[in-house]
Design a protein around this nucleic acid. Structure first.
Lengths: 152, 152
DNA sequence: TTTACTGCAAAAGGTTTGCATGGGT
DNA sequence: ACCCATGCAAACCTTTTGCAGTAAA
């Protein structure tokens, strides 16, 4: 976590911006768990630790934290964006259960190959990708029929 | 396009719902171009053809049209969802230029293999996936530096 | 005749922004 | 001292919803 904060500090300095306690708390909170999060959740987590950082500040800082590659957008769901820490983690994608929301992270080397093909074929310089795979987890496969509206 | 409308009609009938002129116009408009769209754009396209369908009706019908697999969510950008027609099209993913927004559709067989691996390894029954790849298209590679804010 | 569907306008929920205050550098 | 960052509240935008009227079946 020290590394993430240092990275952010140097990014802030490089951009001629200012370091603030709020900014440090946000980074600290994100990397204290290292898990996916959304703005509301992050706000409540900070709050529950007695750190009063406004949502406006979180919203204003997220673009900066993305810009220095410490987090990135993971997926959009339930009307809002979900983010994930990215620094120090192997790049990965998500396998998600469309019934219970369970998330499995995975990585597949073949994605690199796909990127290379695309780069050649369409003359793109490729920076990133995001793969989401959807299905029913083992639990929900059994209960699947219950959750679906009846087809009359 | 006849096929899409028939599919939708039979879906509506099967669900015990009602067919309406508005519903037919929406389907017709979506498949008249077969391209990506968002709600506002679809609304304006209908309007410019003299078809007055309210946005509320579009929003209310999109879940139905997704449910019968005629369209699906493509990506979330600029604060709103983008959809794409799916019926009659080979499943595909998107390569997008992060500078100019250019979209290239592609398909790679390796994604099927990835799905199979995931299915075995994590015991998921997999229904779908969405892969977005980001980079600079050939044009924007040259002009990349211009578009970025200066780093002081 | 029944009741689902539509349009309108209001509401809801996430995100952005204007403004005055406070705090890094 | 300068001016960027914060908190608050209002504004903004997309999407959802309540309601009364309309029209499929």
């Amino acid at each position: 976590m020290t590394t993430e904060i240092d990275l952010f500090r140097s990014y802030i300095a490089r951009k001629g911006l200012r370091n603030t306690p709020e900014r440090e708390e946000i980074i600290r909170e994100i990397f204290s768990s290292g898990d996916h999060f959304d703005v509301d959740e992050l706000y409540l987590r900070l709050r529950s630790r007695g750190k009063r950082v406004s949502k406006a500040s979180i919203y204003r800082n997220i673009p900066l934290i993305m810009d220095c590659s410490l987090i990135r957008e993971a997926w959009h769901e339930d009307g809002h964006m979900h983010y994930e820490p990215v620094y120090g983690q192997r790049h990965h994608c998500h396998l998600r259960c469309i019934n219970c929301g369970k998330v499995v992270e995975f990585y597949d080397e073949k994605l690199k190959t796909i990127e290379e093909h695309l780069s050649e074929k369409y003359d793109f310089s490729i920076l990133d990708h995001r793969l989401e795979v959807f299905g029913y987890c083992s639990n929900c496969q059994r209960n699947e029929s219950k959750e679906k509206p009846p087809s009359p």
